[in-house]
Simulated assay, not measured.
Amino acid sequence: MAIPGGLSGQQPRPQITPRPKPGADTPESDRITPNLRIDTNVVLIPVTVTTPLNQFVTGMEKENFRVFEDKVEQEITYFASFDAPLSVGLVFDASGSMGSKLSKSRQASAQFFKTANPEDEFFLIQFNDRPQLVVPFTQNTEDIQSRLTFTQAKGRTALLDGIYMALQTLKKAKNPRKALLIISDGGDNSSRYTENEVRTLLREADAQMYAIGIYEPIGSRSRSAEELSGPGLLSELTEMTGGRNFPVDNLNDLPDIAAKIGIELRNQYVLGYMSKNQTRDGKYRRVTVKLNQPRGMPPLKPLHRQGYYAPTQ
């Protein structure tokens, strides 16, 4: 079992090497990227396993995992730990308060894209007073980085509307694994959609959500009530999906954190099971993943989505 960086000593900075895009001279056998071809009745649960020091744990086997749905244990019929293709939406805050933070936020996006798999697809939504789909799904990350170069900060913050639009856009994704990355500096003060509406859509979306929150210091007089509630809102929404919220105090940390999120998405296990509850009632079912703790390892923690809606037909 491998833990990147080991369990002792000073942790090295993540080394991120772009994956080469397959060219015409690449052997066909080397171009094949494993895809998830699974019956639609299989419930897929991406899981990240971490140590108390937040290191990723790789090399675990199917026998190390147990899955429960509404407290009933399920049989894991599908298990994978390869780097499966992703469909990812970048939701980028372009409100007025982002002015001095745009440069580092662009760098963060660039570092995130360096972790991409050639089969991944991405889209870009920017938001201020309202959200806008600036770049539809593309495999060319340079398209998104080029558009970010011309982003200007102005207006208010329609964060929830941006997330809502991104979740709707993800419905057109071609890859089974889906994720959102939110880069924002505060709470919402301009959305039409409510927190409850976004929570409901998140439960339906089968997508992981990560957020980088660039907040003013807690003691800052310039923080509004919306900004004060921002960290709690993003933490709650991301944890629902098995993702995480990363608060940032130092702008220089932004690129490294974005790279860490990209690496985390590449160090996941995918568990699949056929639910023992075959009732097609459309109800929300809670999912819990437990670990059979490997010997000699520190206490490990699984991060995963908290549930899903059953089909109705």
Rank of each mutant, 00 (worst) to 15 (best):
M1Q: 12
A2K: 15
I3F: 03
P4T: 09
G5C: 04
S8Q: 11
G9E: 12
P12N: 11
P12F: 10
R13W: 06
Q15V: 13
I16K: 13
T17N: 09
T17D: 06
R19I: 10
K21W: 02
P22E: 13
P22T: 13
A24G: 01
D25E: 08
D25G: 04
S29C: 11
D30G: 03
R31H: 14
I32N: 00
P34H: 11
T40L: 06
V43D: 04
V47E: 00
T51W: 05
L53A: 13
L53T: 15
F56S: 05
V57P: 01
V57L: 00
T58P: 03
G59V: 00
E63C: 02
E63N: 08
E63G: 09
E63R: 14
F65W: 06
V72G: 08
Q74A: 00
Q74G: 00
F79G: 02
V88E: 12
G89D: 05
G89W: 10
A94Q: 11
G96A: 04
G99C: 01
G99D: 07
S100M: 02
S105M: 05
R106W: 03
K114M: 15
K114H: 14
E119T: 14
E119V: 05
E121H: 13
L124Q: 13
Q126K: 12
F127C: 09
F127H: 06
P131F: 12
Q132P: 00
T138L: 07
I144W: 11
S146V: 07
L148P: 04
T151N: 00
K154P: 03
K154S: 14
R156P: 06
T157C: 05
T157H: 07
T157M: 03
L159Y: 08
L160Q: 09
L167R: 01
Q168M: 12
Q168D: 15
P176V: 09
P176K: 13
A179L: 14
S184C: 06
D185T: 08
D188C: 11
N189R: 01
S191E: 09
R192W: 00
T194Q: 12
E195A: 14
V198L: 13
R199P: 02
E204W: 02
A205F: 02
D206Y: 11
A207Y: 05
I218F: 12
G219E: 14
R223G: 04
R223Q: 04
S224Y: 09
S229I: 09
L233R: 10
L234S: 03
L237V: 10
E239H: 11
G243S: 07
G243E: 06
R244M: 02
R244F: 07
N250A: 10
L251D: 08
L254N: 07
L254S: 03
P255A: 08
V270W: 14
G272F: 02
Y273G: 06
M274V: 13
Q278F: 02
Q278D: 11
T279D: 08
R280P: 04
K283A: 15
V287Q: 00
T288S: 07
P299K: 02
L300Q: 09
H304A: 01
R305E: 10
Q306R: 15
A310W: 06
A310I: 05
T312W: 02
Q313S: 05
Q313W: 01
